[in-house]
């Protein structure tokens, strides 16, 4: 089961704030799904620095679906 944050209609940095808050309580082995219309480089740098891994998938409507979990 994964938690979902739809940040597509949120103003920056709201999606990033929600994601960081969700990561705080994300259990090991669980995945956080983030939907955006961009590549959030600042988030990727934070994830890299704090031991998280992610994979992203671009949809035809421009949605970037990012799956995040602990490494």
């Amino acid at each position: 089961m994964s938690r979902v944050i739809d940040g597509r209609d949120l103003q920056p940095p709201e999606p990033l704030e929600l994601t960081l808050a969700a990561l705080d309580t994300l259990p090991d082995g669980e995945e956080l799904k983030l939907l955006l219309y961009c590549q959030p480089h600042p988030l990727y740098q934070i994830l890299k620095r704090n031991g998280y891994v992610w994979r992203d998938e671009m949809h035809p409507d421009g949605t970037n679906e990012i799956h995040i979990r602990k490494a």
Binding site: P12, P13, L16, E17, L20, A21, L23, D24, P42, I46, R49, N50
Partner: peptide, 20 residues
């Protein structure tokens, strides 16, 4: 926005920076 991003860089994951 720059304030927030630079503060976030400083915080890491342990502390949430103040709202923009």
């Amino acid at each position: 926005f720059l304030n927030w991003l630079h503060l976030q860089r400083l915080c890491g994951l342990t502390v949430v920076p103040p709202n923009m």
